[in-house]
Design a protein around this nucleic acid. Sequence first.
DNA 1: CTGATCTGTCCGAATATTCCGGACGATCTC
DNA 2: GAGATCGTCCGGAATATTCGGACAGATCAG
Lengths: 258, 258
Amino acid sequence: MTADVPLTTVARAFEILEYIREEGGASVSELTDALDVPKSTVHDYVTTLTRLGYLTNDGGKYDLSLAFLTHGTYAKNDVAYADRVEPALEELADETGEIVWYIVEEGGRGVYAGRGIGRDALQPYASIGTRSALHTIAGGKAILTALPDDRVDEIVAEHGLERHTERTITTREELEEARERIAERGYALNDGENIDGWRAVASPVVLENGLYGAIAVAGPRNRLRGEYFEETLPELAAGTANEVQLRLRSELGTTFSE
Amino acid sequence: MTADVPLTTVARAFEILEYIREEGGASVSELTDALDVPKSTVHDYVTTLTRLGYLTNDGGKYDLSLAFLTHGTYAKNDVAYADRVEPALEELADETGEIVWYIVEEGGRGVYAGRGIGRDALQPYASIGTRSALHTIAGGKAILTALPDDRVDEIVAEHGLERHTERTITTREELEEARERIAERGYALNDGENIDGWRAVASPVVLENGLYGAIAVAGPRNRLRGEYFEETLPELAAGTANEVQLRLRSELGTTFSE
DNA sequence: CTGATCTGTCCGAATATTCCGGACGATCTC
DNA sequence: GAGATCGTCCGGAATATTCGGACAGATCAG
């Protein structure tokens, strides 16, 4: 189940934390049953994590503490630079009325790191921190196009090309065709490849320090169609992506090592 | 240094993660020197955390991964309900032009869990996830007023009343006076008690499930003054706090156990 | 180009730490 | 108020952690 790591104690601690997040809180006995670990052992873990300030204990129910918010905000801003990107997302959300995402590659997956909500936006299917397979979303396909070929090979080898809908890309050949088309045009389209009825448009943001990201606009198929979907929106997304890329490059440029 | 906990291995893992966050990334040898742990041991920790997906390794420099963003967003929304509060923060920020915070008590400290930025807002001195001593901020004083007396005793016993500026409350008597005044008025004021030149106004949000929070408006002393500071803003903050409280209560009310 | 000195990584034996059965109250249920 | 369930605590056995040392690669100075 758990990955083979040098320190199994640390792996167990995070297994417990992840279970608690997925279940929205848990008790000692619940964790005992779910993870098949004696309750005295579970107790050691949760008391440790509580004393360290990473869990709260409300009448026997343990839940993640806001300490993760500190770490998470750090990762979002200092690792993904989302605070620098968000004003541009808001602008694009105002212009288009839809949901705008800033997506960043990490560990071969796409992480939703920033968001702008337009006036007509549907209830989003993701939230900040959500991870998606790269090949199923517009932003991910833009990222896969920008990444070097051998890195794409690695990612496909590790994560495969899982099907989400009828339209999902599931073979390496299809992915390669898509990458070529996206490279030519400078933007990626998604038509229900992740979730039926949703369409999206995305353009990549690449930095010299190894960050691969994308700006994506997502909305319902009935609003994102025709020339607007295939020309107007891509231009807007590409404009924002370009602006963000230049902005980040100039702000962070001096610290790039190579 | 580290708290006395059943599992020292877990404590060390988080010590390393916290060091990495504070320093903005670190190498094996840096961690070896800073934490006084042999490099082979440090290596075990960072490889474990990397394999688990909580650290990234960019040419020997380890940094927090976006996995913390997933946990942090969960804590923010499912524990502090910030997603439900944020629209009201935005509204209040639009009305006042200043920075608006949603602050939540956890472990006797105040956590900045939500934010709205008005048109005239100064560069904020905090970000989402930042922790502050409750007695030094308006939101914290509003929370301390809402909390039962014995819990306030506990918090003061654990954290003390550290001085931040000349105006900071540093004695239990001053705190008690402040609590009485705030209880009477229904809102708390802060005049440079945390950071010189900053003023703030806050009103509490209390839920039956044990959540103690506050809505605070913060800005520079030259804009927040006179009747506006002492009457208009408090009314606006109290209005938003009340609205948020009712909204959360009706949304979450059915799940309250008592 | 070469030697010296940094890195990060890997290995295996000693031992300190985790693990877990069992016992204890407290709380809840019927 | 009896029975079941839960969280907490304890201490010995077993195991995972620890850390010195060795190695290879990178970096740097001369």
